[in-house]
């Protein structure tokens, strides 16, 4: 066994994101997809990031890895990963080594990240070689161990091409790739979208189990509040490229402070309880004009709007006990 796998450190690593700005340059103008985000991702915890389509979740995740594709550009900020440094300023080679080795990433629609022309096993070896792993047999062994743990027939999967796998199997293969080099921080972007309920439950169970066994720091991105609420310790609510609210999952769900979070929770179709408690969230996410305006991004849809909300944007403030919120209605602003 290679020493590189035996010497696992069990100190979970946190991530500090400061003043992060990412924008996409389009013919219609720049889209501020991530706009001044400040976020500390707690080591050893599962942090869920939730928000509507287009709120900037995937862009934030890619910025965390410093892999934002064109026409996107990181404009400012820092992303400091414990034990590595600032992902946005370290040299290219260190960054390349950090990917996979320290930071594991499962892309949204993970099927697209696999090479359709190579067997899964060959791709594991490619990954190992690109990270100068000496003992490739040990690497394959670990891949098998992970696949087996996820309820897959490891030998069969390693011999398969991606098109021979079902959606649920591909998601699990994506998780295997994120973990096989023993990453300490794992980012999962919509790992269960497009899966049926049973596959979703089994993927969530696997994430939960591996997270605990390996003392990982896990970031789970989803537009489905149910998924985040079931799995995450902490939840971060994104809206229009900014953070609206964060806190422990239990607290945020039981006592949401931001009117957007309140509306989002009320809009979930529920399996039990009275039907009329669920109410659709009126209105639409902010368009580019609203993003550029001075007021609160949510003001146009907000049932609790004040005159000030149309004039300036509330800052993201701590309200104690790990909770933050950007709303003029909430104490700390007056």
């Amino acid at each position: 066994m290679a020493a590189e796998f035996e010497a696992r450190d069990f100190h979970a690593r946190g991530v500090q994101i400061r003043n992060l700005r990412v924008s996409y340059q389009t013919p219609q103008g720049d889209i501020p997809a991530v706009n001044g985000v400040n976020l500390s991702i707690a080591p050893g915890k599962i942090t869920g990031i939730i928000g509507e389509s287009g709120s900037g979740k995937s862009t934030l995740a890619m910025a965390l890895m410093n892999t934002v594709p064109r026409p996107g550009r990181i404009i400012s900020g820092s992303v400091v990963v414990d034990g590595i440094g600032d992902m946005l300023t370290i040299d290219k080679e260190s960054r390349r080594r950090a990917h996979g080795r320290h930071l594991g990433f499962v892309f949204q629609a993970s099927q697209n990240s696999l090479n359709p022309l190579r067997r899964i096993g060959a791709q594991v070896l490619d990954l190992g070689r690109s990270h100068n792993v000496k003992d490739l047999r040990a690497l394959i062994k670990r891949a098998k161990e992970l696949l087996g743990k996820m309820g897959l027939n490891a030998d069969r999967v390693l011999l398969s091409y991606q098109h021979e796998l079902s959606g649920g199997m591909r998601q699990r293969v994506g998780i295997m790739f994120a973990l096989v080099l023993d990453a300490r921080v794992v980012i999962l972007d919509e790992p269960t979208t497009a899966l049926d309920m049973l596959s979703q439950a089994s993927v969530l169970q696997i994430v939960r189990q591996i997270h605990q066994e390996r003392h990982l720091t896990t970031v789970l991105i989803s537009h489905d509040m149910g998924v985040v609420a079931d799995l995450a310790d902490n939840v971060v609510v994104m809206y229009g490229g900014e953070l609206a609210e964060q806190g422990s999952t239990e607290e945020v769900l039981a006592h949401p402070l931001h009117p957007y979070t309140q509306g989002l929770i009320k809009a979930i179709p529920r399996i039990s309880g009275p039907l009329d408690q669920a109410v659709a969230l009126p209105g639409l996410p902010p368009d580019s004009a609203a993003l550029m305006a001075h007021g609160c991004l949510f003001a146009g849809r907000c049932p609790k709007r004040l005159p000030v909300c149309g004039e300036s944007r509330p800052t993201y403030e701590s309200v104690g006990q790990g909770r933050y919120v950007a709303c003029f209605r909430v104490a700390g602003h007056d």
Binding site: L198, Q200, D230, E250, L253, A254
Partner: peptide, 14 residues
């Protein structure tokens, strides 16, 4: 029962 068990539980609310 398996399908219903798979429905995520909303921590804090359920």
């Amino acid at each position: 029962q398996a399908l219903l068990s798979a429905v995520p539980v909303l921590k804090g609310l359920e």
